[in-house]
Design a binder for these strands. Structure first.
Length: 112
DNA sequence: TCTATGACTCCGG
DNA sequence: CCCGGAGCCATAG
């Protein structure tokens, strides 16, 4: 039997990166996937986030698509919970889209 | 096993 | 930037 403790699985990696997102910052699925070496699997990042949604330790609301659009806000409770969470961190969101997305964008490689 | 779907991204127009 | 189409890859049925 294998003692899998923080094993370098794809999902685990995504969780680690997502947790390392600084306060008031956001990133894209592709950025995480690219950092993991699987930019082609950006969708898998979203899928991992879906599983991560079961973990309250994953700030999935800080992860948006490359356009800065809150594509996953539908997966959060309510209709604008994700937006409120982002605004709560000082990020301005308009029409499910982050204003000055480039300004708030955080690259995993910047810290890792 | 195969088909369909998806919290994406890239490319051409 | 917007629109339509194609690619990628893991999970679900």
């Amino acid at each position: 039997m294998k003692a899998k403790n923080e094993e370098p699985n794809f999902f685990t990696k995504v969780y680690q990166v997502a947790q390392q997102i600084p306060y008031g910052r956001v990133t894209s699925y592709g950025a995480i996937a690219s950092y993991l070496g699987a930019k082609r699997s950006a969708r898998m990042v979203g899928w991992a986030m879906n599983a991560a949604h079961q973990m309250e330790a994953i700030p999935a609301h800080r992860v948006v698509n490359r356009k800065g659009l809150l594509t996953g806000k539908h997966h959060f409770e309510g209709t604008n919970l994700m937006q409120q969470l982002l605004e709560s961190e000082g990020i301005i969101v308009k029409d499910n889209q982050i204003i000055n997305f480039e300004n708030y964008f955080w690259n995993p490689k910047d810290n890792l």
